[in-house]
Amino acid sequence: MVYYIFTLVFFCFDYFILAMGLNIQYGEAGILNFAYIGFVAIGAYFTGVFSLPSSAGTGQHYILGLGLPFPVNLLLGGLAAMFFALIVALITLRRLRTDYLAIVLISLSLVLYDFCNNFVSLFNGADGLYNVPEPFAKAFGLTVNSFIPFFACVTAVISLLMWFVMSRVMRAPVGRTFRAIRDDEVVAAALGKNVFLMRLKAMLIGSFYAGVGGGLLIQFGGSFNPTAWLPGETFVVFAVLIVGGAGNNIGMFVGALLVETLLIHLPAFLPEIPGHPGLIEYFDNAVVGIVLMLMLWFRPQGVVPERLRRAASFGVRSGLGMLPQAPIEPAALDRP
């Protein structure tokens, strides 16, 4: 029982991280990243291979195998996802319209899956990775049963840390510029914002979150299975984001709790219906799609809507009398 509850706790906090990453890309900067799960997979894979011992003699095929300790491999996994995002963004983000970008990214997601499944010498093919060392298990003498509550708490702490950082970013001018680009990129460009550069920033930080979320997944389960990274999984993160409320971090947590924990993982504990293997899971996935559509139609702002950023939050003294009288800054005519 404790095992089940902490599994749910883990997935809730992990998807909180994943949703925050997608939120900065889609909810803030308006990038429709339909390949999001690909970045999660990259983070998971690299977190795994950085912590696994050298591949010789394990019967698996993978690169690196550096045997690095826990937080280091996770950080490198996040950076690997970020690096991959840099390449993808440089190719696609500069010139493609929303729908073309969505096409390319969803294709990329399918190709990554296909590639992973077939390229045995790099990704161990359809078998994926397994026996990934459990962090701290040896040092603290954790058993299979005590590892799960322990790691769920580790994930909770990491997610809160990442939430703190993300809320700083979203409150800063950079977050405001992201939202300006999301609302109207032509206006943002006309105001002197380099739309490509700003979107690249959103893409990179979001992918870091994706990579860390993926790394935590592989550390929790100890294995990397390509079928967990089908494009449909991206949709689950979108569902978390839209149900919770795009543009709001608290919403991401609420969404993770409602969608990932209650809708996806709780039914997984239901007994199978005899003679229909996997029926519950299929049915459940379809329900996620239906919930998202109903949500978009009846409450597009989500359970927790985007916060209104009031004037008082900018540190200005209240009352107009305190304001300087010359409203228009004299224009510098000799500017180049």
């Binding site: 339909f34 969803i106 949709f235 979108f238 569902a239 839209i242 379809a286 799609g289 978009l296």
Partner: peptide, 14 residues
């Protein structure tokens, strides 16, 4: 676009 993506998930699982 998100709705068609969701429709895809619903149809596939149905």
């Amino acid at each position: 676009l998100i709705v068609t993506f969701g429709l895809s998930l619903i149809m596939l699982n149905a």
